[in-house]
Amino acid sequence: MRSRAGRFAIVGLLILLPLLLQQIDDYILHIAIIIGIYAILSLSLNVIVGYAGQFALGHAAFYGIGAYTAALIMLHGSASFWLALAAAAAVTGLFGLLLGSPVIRLRGDYLGIVTLGFGEIVRLIFVNWVDVTRGPMGLPGIPAPSLFGHAFTEKIEFYYLILALVLLTYFIINRIVHSGIGLNLLTIREDETLAQSVGIRPNPYKLLAFSLGACFAGVAGAYWAAYISYVSPDSFRYLDSVNILAMVILGGTASLPGSILGAILLVLAPEILRYMNDYRMMLLGLAIILMMIFKPSGFWGEKHRKYNFYGLAQKGGRK
């Protein structure tokens, strides 16, 4: 996605793809939708892990909080999907802030453990707060989104919805990380003492990264709830957090196209290697180790960066 034309081509293709393939089956659309959900999750985690350098292991918790928030609002408040989506984003963003404010002062490995613990506790609450969440049974019957009085029933409609959400997420995160905010985040990640010595106050930036990342994970969660029309604690386990993190790592930290690539790879791989399904997580673990040893920057890492911050094309001039 180097040039503007290239980007338009890809987006156009994604919009037209289902129309071109006359007899596209629901299975392929379903896979595409799952890729979309994970693309949002890995893009949002990349803000926290890749740009702010915070080793967070509880992203599935934010995803879950978003899903439950949206589900509860739609079921009990009979709110529309769109309102629930906004509410889920706001609530998870707030949780990101709440979790972020005590933990951002911690060093990498400590932060990892604390966020891991946070993820486990959120899941425990989903399981144990039966009055609200119905515990392990989960919340069924979440209504589908509707637009101008038309309820979404076809997979193709959900496909376009997630495509729009992915594009929106990509656009917003891309603008933010390529502003001064992103440059400051990377500086903090590389060398916090240096960041302070050039006038950057680190904590607000780290908090911003946390709540921004959490916010978009909430968007993904709200979509998931409406798409599957059911939420249960099983979808938001520690291994799901690891899976999302692996997408960020394999794609390349601090690389937005990389995050999407990571989501595509890790959603497709188990589908293609179905006969190896038992070994899926084992292979994932091995892939993470090998990646760290041989290519820690990921398949589409920062080295591919073509533009300076502020969107200034390299070789001086404005883009």
């Binding site: 933010i176 001064g180 905010i181 440059l183 400051n184 240096l194």
Partner: peptide, 30 residues
């Protein structure tokens, strides 16, 4: 002590007092 993987210009940009005065909204609605 430099950001070794960033360009010369970016290394200076980061210290500019106006570089980080953009709000999130300003960054989005450029």
């Amino acid at each position: 002590r430099l950001l070794k993987n960033m360009t010369v210009l970016e290394n200076v940009l980061v210290a500019h007092p106006q570089c980080n005065t953009e709000s999130v909204l300003e960054a989005i609605f450029l």
